[in-house]
Design a binder for these strands. Structure first.
Lengths: 120, 120
DNA sequence: AAACACAGTACCTTTTTGGTAACCATTACA
DNA sequence: TGTAATGGTTACCAAAAAGGTACTGTGTTT
């Protein structure tokens, strides 16, 4: 169980090097919004304005930024409809869907932790 | 599958509120080092100097800081031996061990992602 | 003619995180 | 007497992440 040192190869991602898969994962979804965005998109394709409603405590700017990075990293697909007013739909790519089990565990674990913590 | 909105209750952690378990989890292990530290401690109890060797690209300050927070959050146990020179051992608490499945998935997923990405 | 809808972008500020260098205490050993 | 070992702390600074506000474009509705 020492996968991370056994393979001494470094992983490269966006010009940075990582020793361990955990760090790669966190680089991709470790921000303040990304994991939640993926979680919501896993449940349904959403328009930009839907996401704005869901994440009403952030700004358009932050959402755009995070979505662009997720798109660049191949986790989210962005589909623009050529109409006015604009319509843009966001959905998970196949690769994006593969992270769902982690999000599910994180969701459950966090909820349990918060509950246990509140009782203590 | 809309656990996060179905329960409209907010979770509180260190004076902050979270809507979703995912955010709680990330608040606890989402930093640059914490998840890796937990991953290493899951494999063996380590002294501070062991951790310094493992994380040779960080500083005593960062290690101490991260370990203190993990301790405060109940994920890591810190045992001080009253001797000179000092000896301090870090290990996971029971609660800390419960996060291991997530770390394992994150480790595998990140490695797969990095591999797939390099081929594309 | 004015306002609205949607999905942004540009520019700037604040907050959080990470990093450097220096310092401390105690005992053993040369 | 001086140095090494361990496990820190503190003050200060740099970089990264997040946040705020204003502005854009273009058809449609009022």
């Amino acid at each position: 169980m020492q996968q991370n040192q056994a393979t001494a190869e470094l992983m490269t991602l966006r010009d940075r090097e990582y020793k361990c898969g955990i760090d790669v994962t966190l680089a991709l979804v470790g921000g303040k919004w990304k994991a939640s965005i993926l979680w919501h998109l896993a449940q349904e394709t959403m328009r930009f304005s839907d996401l704005q409603r869901q994440f009403s405590d952030t700004t358009r700017k932050m959402l755009t930024q995070q979505l662009r990075e997720l798109e660049t990293d191949g986790l989210v697909h962005r589909k623009v409809y050529p109409q006015v007013p604009p319509k843009v739909e966001y959905s998970l790519t196949d690769q994006g869907r593969t992270i769902f089990p982690i999000l599910e565990l994180m969701c459950d674990w966090g909820r349990n932790y918060a509950q246990a913590g509140n009782q203590a």
